[in-house]
Amino acid sequence: MAEDIQLDRDGHVCIITINRPHVMNSLDFSANEKLVEAWQTFSSDPELRVALITGSGGKAFCAGADLKTYTMSFATTPAPEFQRKYTNGPGLGGITRNLHVFKPILAAIDGYAISGGFEIALACDIRFCSDRAKFGLQDVKWGFHACDGGLIRLREIVGRGNAMEMILSGDLIDADHALRIGLVNRICRKQDLFDESLTYAHHLATRAPLAQQLAKEVMVRAEGLSLDEALRLESTSFHGLGKTRDLEEGTTAFREKRDAKFVGE
């Protein structure tokens, strides 16, 4: 029997597949825990530099939490336990809250990315989608609102007006709309989506991993800081790369007019 969450290695790329197509790749508690574990494996393995997350089956990237087995149990958890387990623990899918992964994460989105599944996509750094992808936070149709970063990240990515339209209506948008408002980076033909995404993930994996990770961490931690504080953080982070082997290799490769071979040290 296939695993609900599959983790495969392709060189320096970690491929994470949500494999529950019979329920539009929605997550029950068990699958959610396995997805958290997959991110932890990726984050802790120095040989894995870039993650690519996708969904199986062709109908959905991820439809969020399984309404039949997850949502009501989650929403009605007593307050102290909810605070400990959910507010202070990893969000849906792990990366949406309290699980910091500073390596690059690319999402390959085919079909529906809705509610919590959309929030997982928002927590990724780069989003490629197929020409048949659909996006939405439909929670207001069911009596609640997003709670795993949707109300926060969507506004940062597409702006307040576009975010309000999606959040308050619960309506879906298509791939062209998503590209127009900056929600996705690229639209691919359905049959080309995975290959193009994997090729780009390998492209990212050729860059200096320490520089990528520190740059991403600065961008994440700078949110909410004053301009002066953010600029100081950026400068301090840059100096942290000064004595790395990767910086020496990168500058040497530039002088020798060749591609750098980074080792992550």
Rank of each mutant, 00 (worst) to 15 (best):
L154G: 04
G111T: 04
T96W: 05
V158E: 07
A133K: 08
P104Y: 13
A163Y: 00
T54R: 15
W142T: 07
C124T: 15
G58D: 02
I120P: 08
Y86E: 09
G94A: 04
L151Q: 07
R153T: 13
I109K: 07
F61L: 01
G58S: 01
R132D: 15
P46V: 05
F102G: 03
C62E: 02
P104H: 14
Q138C: 07
S115T: 10
F128C: 01
H145Q: 07
E47S: 10
G116V: 03
A75D: 10
I95Y: 12
F135H: 10
Y70M: 15
R155Q: 14
I109M: 11
L92D: 05
A113W: 08
K134T: 10
R97C: 00
N162P: 01
I114P: 03
G161L: 12
V140Y: 00
S56W: 05
C147D: 11
R155L: 01
I114E: 02
G143V: 02
V140W: 00
I109P: 09
H100G: 01
G91D: 14
L137Q: 02
E156Y: 09
A123D: 08
L67Q: 13
Q138G: 03
A133V: 09
I109V: 15
F128I: 02
G161P: 00
R155G: 02
L48F: 11
M72I: 10
I53H: 11
T77L: 14
K141M: 02
F128A: 05
K85T: 15
A75V: 11
C129Q: 10
G150R: 04
K134R: 15
G93A: 10
E47R: 09
F144V: 02
R127Q: 08
A108K: 08
C147L: 05
T71V: 12
N88L: 15
R160N: 13
R153A: 13
I105P: 01
R153V: 10
K59V: 06
C147W: 02
D148F: 12
F102N: 15
T96I: 05
